[in-house]
């Protein structure tokens, strides 16, 4: 069982984000980076699948500039076996910012093809672009079936990989707290939703071992022509008039008590 997990490096959640000078992207100069949250769950699911099967390989894959290697290292420290880094320039021509979802998915699909994986996992959505489609696009490019919003994966049959496996059964999330099982043959691609497992932490031992693990760099293909173009990025303008309170905690509490008593009428 060979599993490829696509992990994306995204700005920390509390990062202060500014619009880039050209008005078409995010100014990344002061940003600290982290692993996209659903991708961490995808990695966890892959590691548990391998552990349950008793054999196999988990390969983590990321497209981006040099800095993304810290995220790949983190995945290796948590237990992934090796990493593939599709190297793109930090900015300008060929950088992630200049590519649309189809183009990024092409880069990733190309790398997956070279691995001939049984299963490909991605997160369901990235925290920065929020496109929510790279995984589904990859499945289409790879010509494999897919399921989205997946919480759990179960191997059907012997579970020993391509030949010995009759397929998988996944539990996926529907809206309003509903769930559904879906079965499909392998190879397949799944986009993973957060919360299906508890995330593990990297141990000191894991971090030490990660330094010895393989990190293969492949050069990204030239960018294709964008199908969609980002023409402008800006902070949203407030539509609703919110009464904003600042001051000491006590003075805020006093104002809130007034509102709760006389306007909201819950006190």
């Amino acid at each position: 069982m060979k599993i490829v997990v696509a992990v994306k490096q995204v700005p920390e959640r509390d990062a202060v984000v500014r619009v880039a000078a050209d008005g078409r992207g995010v100014d990344a100069s002061d940003v600290s980076w982290t692993m996209n949250e659903p991708d961490a769950y995808a990695l966890e699911e892959a590691l548990q699948l391998k552990e349950r099967a008793g054999s196999g390989e988990v390969v983590v894959l990321c497209a981006g500039p040099e800095r993304v290697q810290s995220t790949l290292r983190e995945a290796l420290a948590k237990g992934a076996d090796r990493a593939v880094h599709v190297v793109t320039p930090e900015e300008g021509e060929g950088s992630l910012g200049e590519r649309d979802s189809l183009d990024v998915a092409r880069l990733l699909a190309e790398a997956v093809r070279a691995e001939s994986a049984d299963l490909v996992l991605t997160g369901l959505q990235s925290d920065d672009l929020g496109a929510g489609q790279t995984g589904v696009v990859m499945a289409e490019l790879l010509g494999v079936p897919h399921a989205t919003l997946v919480l759990q994966v179960e191997l059907l049959g012997s579970g020993s990989g391509a030949g010995g496996n009759s397929g998988i059964r996944v539990k996926r999330e529907l809206e309003d707290g509903w769930m559904q099982h879906v079965e499909m043959p392998l190879p397949a691609l799944l986009t993973v939703q957060s919360g299906g497992n508890r995330l593990r932490y990297a141990t000191l031992m894991g971090i030490k071992k990660a330094r010895q693990k393989e990190m293969r760099e492949v050069e990204a293909a030239a960018a294709g022509k964008r199908v969609d173009e980002v023409v402008k990025v800006s902070p949203p303008t407030r539509v609703k008039r919110t009464e904003m309170l600042t001051g000491t905690a006590e003075s805020i509490a006093a104002v809130l008590i007034e509102r709760l008593r006389f306007e909201v009428k819950v006190l």
Binding site: P236, T242, E243, T246, A249, I252, R261
Partner: peptide, 30 residues
């Protein structure tokens, strides 16, 4: 700049660890 303030009628910009205990105390007193 949190987007929650877009839908809030009243927005409190502050550290929850200061504001929440103060509010709880005030409600109890009330």
């Amino acid at each position: 700049d949190a987007p929650i303030f877009e839908v809030a009628d009243i927005g409190v910009v502050g550290d929850l660890f200061e504001v929440v205990p103060a509010l709880t105390k005030a409600i109890r007193a009330q």
